[in-house]
């Protein structure tokens, strides 16, 4: 196609100028079109599946809404008052707090330890990284069922009880015993198993961003490898990652649902907020007014805690 090529070589050709202009114009329109084609589905999804339900929840929370999503009886703030004085809702927040006390520090320390170990491995590094990351790909429901039915079931052929049996220890009904509260062991271990790999990867990324010159300088200054270097170089340098891990971890803990629902069900001694809200609004009770009010209270609490965390640990300043 030589003829058009020649034509393009001539800048004065009026047709060409027009063409360029048109093409540039079309290019911008085309970019916008492609932008919306790529972004559109997500925006539409976000609007329909996130923002609309949030707005709808807000509306529902001011109505008495049993068995209906289009209620007519306005009750003002009564649902909020009810939820804030509902001992079940308050105790579900307590349950969450206990859970967070276990899971957040444990995940943090273990993920960091794993990351340090895997990062120092000289051979088969990719293998170790993948092996520890793999459980992240497993679904919470599947893992919970394995924990419930085979590892921590209460009869003599459960894995945990078989192992205890070797030492002559009596069977323990892991998920049904409230005194002592053995159910926390399956609940905490299943989440650790599932999420450690993910946070380990975050820490590894953080570790690899630390400049080796810092360590070299430290050694030159006489720092001893081990705790001293970790305490004064590695940990401060991991600050951004650490804050991110803490925040993500705490939010994830607030959103705990799957393992509780599948391991212990809707029981009032181990019921995090989401399981409780699910049971009153989406189970057979279908009390969408109180459920929505509770969900919004929970959302506000999560926001406040996240902001406080930011204030304390300084996520914004962590870019250094």
């Amino acid at each position: 196609m030589s003829a058009p090529a020649k034509a393009s070589a001539d800048p004065a050709a009026p047709g060409e100028r027009q063409g360029t202009r048109r093409r540039r114009h079309k290019g911008i329109a085309g970019n916008a079109l492609w932008f919306w084609i790529f972004v559109g589905p997500f925006v539409v999804g976000l609007l329909i599946f996130s923002y609309l339900p949030i707005i709808w929840s807000l509306v529902l929370s001011f109505f008495e809404a049993y068995n209906t999503a289009t209620p007519s009886k306005f009750v003002g703030l009564r649902n909020y008052v009810d939820m804030l004085t509902d001992h079940n809702f308050l105790s579900s927040l307590g349950t969450f707090t206990i859970f967070a006390v276990f899971i957040v520090p444990l995940t943090f320390v273990l993920a960091l330890a794993l990351a340090l170990l895997v990062n120092q491995v000289k051979i088969a590094r990719a293998f170790f990284r993948s092996v520890f990351f793999l459980p992240t790909a497993c679904s919470y429901v599947v893992a919970s069922l394995i924990w419930k039915l085979s590892i921590f079931n209460g009869v003599r052929f459960g894995l945990a009880n078989t192992v205890l049996g070797w030492f002559g220890i009596e069977n323990i009904a892991w998920l049904s015993t409230v005194d002592p509260p053995w159910y926390w062991i399956p609940l905490v271990t299943v989440r650790l198993w599932l999420q450690l790999g993910f946070y380990m990867i975050l820490f590894i990324a953080g570790l690899q961003r630390i400049s080796p010159t810092l360590y070299e300088a430290a050694y030159v200054d006489g720092a001893k490898p081990g705790w001293q270097v970790f305490r004064y170089i590695t940990l401060p340098q991991l600050r951004a990652t650490s804050v991110a891990v803490l925040i993500l971890n705490l939010i994830a803990a607030y959103q705990a649902f799957d393992e509780f629902y599948n391991l212990v069900g809707n029981v009032n001694y181990a019921r995090p907020p989401l399981v409780y809200l699910y049971s009153i609004s989406l189970g057979s009770i279908q009390d969408l007014g109180h459920g929505s009010a509770g969900a919004l209270i929970l959302a506000v609490i999560i926001m406040i805690v996240t902001l406080l965390q930011n204030r304390i640990f300084g996520f914004g300043k962590a870019g250094d």
């Binding site: 079940n88 049904s176 409230v178 005194d179 029981v267 009032n268 001694y269 049971s279 009153i280 189970g283 057979s284 009770i285 279908q286 009390d287």
Partner: peptide
Amino acid sequence: PKMGTAFTDLLTNVIKK
């Protein structure tokens, strides 16, 4: 169902705790 849930909570607290 809401009464049923309150009754179940009663039972859980008495039986287990």
